[in-house]
């Protein structure tokens, strides 16, 4: 695999392989020296056209633990504010010799354009594009679920996962639905009708408008952030009403089975989609998700950059599959 643009590009075995690799790499965090020489001499650019705390720092930490050189680019304070296009920015990076570009952009499809335009020769990783996809977030969510509920091995067959909230604007939801269904989980989206995207009936998941009805049959509840910055219309009457019907508070926590975990991709609107005491409860994996994010991103960078350079795009080659012998 040359790029990671969509969680839908990962087939079952590849996805499990990424999670297994992340599980191995997670052990590095327990060591006195949290550093591997694996990607020495490779340059990774964090190309962030949109604000981010977790994802950018997580990718930076992951790349540095693998000894890659990291260049951070954020649109604020760069020539983008002078009107430079994505193409010119990409060609500048290419001219400086980068092996991989981690891109976040407010426009859906920007990473795809970057990967397939011929502007750059390196690997492209989608770190969130508009309301489209955020594949490494889905991988770290799957990793967290697998660790907590499946002992860190295999896939997620039969796991009942409920995603609640602003599905319409959520790239996390889309990537999670694709990846989790690939891994065998049964996904249910819960949201007010106005916050479900057009065509959601074609997604590999169920939908519901009623949170209280769905909670008792959930092994995982993932709360999605209400993305006010992307809302250009009125999607619900008041935040108070939204919170009453779709927020996870202590009373709703009581409806969940004993083993169920509560997830949130962050950043949280405390008191809106999730009550502060729920976010800080023992069932919440929110901080753990951040830790796991580094391991999963290390795995993705290793699997994309760790082997021989593939000159031309080779879509047939699976991630991590050894190249036939002959160059030992």
């Amino acid at each position: 695999m040359k790029h990671l643009l969509s969680a839908g590009d990962l087939d079952h075995d590849t996805a499990v392989h990424v999670l297994d690799t992340a599980e191995r790499l997670a052990r590095i965090a327990d060591r006195p020296v949290k550093k591997l020489p694996t990607l020495r001499g490779r340059t990774v650019v964090n190309l962030f056209f949109e604000d981010s705390t977790r994802t950018r720092i997580s990718f930076e930490a992951a790349a540095k633990r693998l000894s890659a050189d990291v260049i951070n680019f954020s649109a604020k304070g760069s020539s983008v504010s002078k009107g430079e296009s994505l193409k010119d920015t990409a060609m500048t990076l290419e001219a400086m010799g980068t092996d991989a570009v981690i891109v976040r952009h407010s426009c859906s499809g920007a990473p795809h354009r970057l990967a397939n335009s011929g502007w750059i020769g390196g690997h492209v990783v989608n770190a969130g594009d508009g309301t489209h996809e955020h594949p490494t977030q889905a991988l770290l969510d799957a990793f967290t679920m697998r660790r907590r509920l499946r002992g860190g091995v295999g896939d997620l067959a039969g796991l009942r996962v409920t995603l609640v909230g602003d599905v319409l604007h959520s790239r996390v939801a889309r990537s999670n639905v694709l990846l989790l269904s690939t891994l065998g989980a049964a996904v249910t989206l819960v949201a007010p009708p106005t916050l479900l995207p057009v065509g959601v009936e074609t997604w590999p998941c169920a939908t519901s408008y009623d949170l209280d009805e769905t909670l008792p049959g959930s092994d995982v509840v993932m709360m999605l952030r209400v993305q006010s910055e992307r809302m250009n219309a009125s999607f619900f009457p008041t935040t108070r009403e939204y919170s009453r019907r779709y927020g996870l508070d202590r009373a709703r926590l009581g409806l969940l089975p004993e083993h169920t975990i509560v997830m949130h991709p962050g950043p949280m609107n405390r008191g809106m989609e999730i009550a502060p005491d729920v976010a800080d409860s023992a069932r919440s994996t929110i901080v753990e998700q951040v830790t796991n994010g580094v391991s999963v991103r290390m795995a993705v960078l290793y699997l994309l950059l760790g082997g021989a350079d593939i000159g031309a795009p080779a879509p047939a080659e699976a991630i991590g599959e050894p190249v036939p012998a002959g160059v030992a």
Binding site: H17, D20, T21, R24, L25, R27, L36, P37, T38, L66, Y302, L303, G306, G307, A308, D309, E317, I319, G320, E321, P322, V323, V327, A328
Partner: peptide
């Protein structure tokens, strides 16, 4: 002790799967 991540021939061939340490 898995040594895959420390090999000097990583760039010579495709990505190798990791073993447990």
């Amino acid at each position: 002790l898995d040594i895959t991540l420390y090999r000097d021939d990583l760039r010579m061939r495709g990505v190798r799967a990791l073993e447990p340490t």
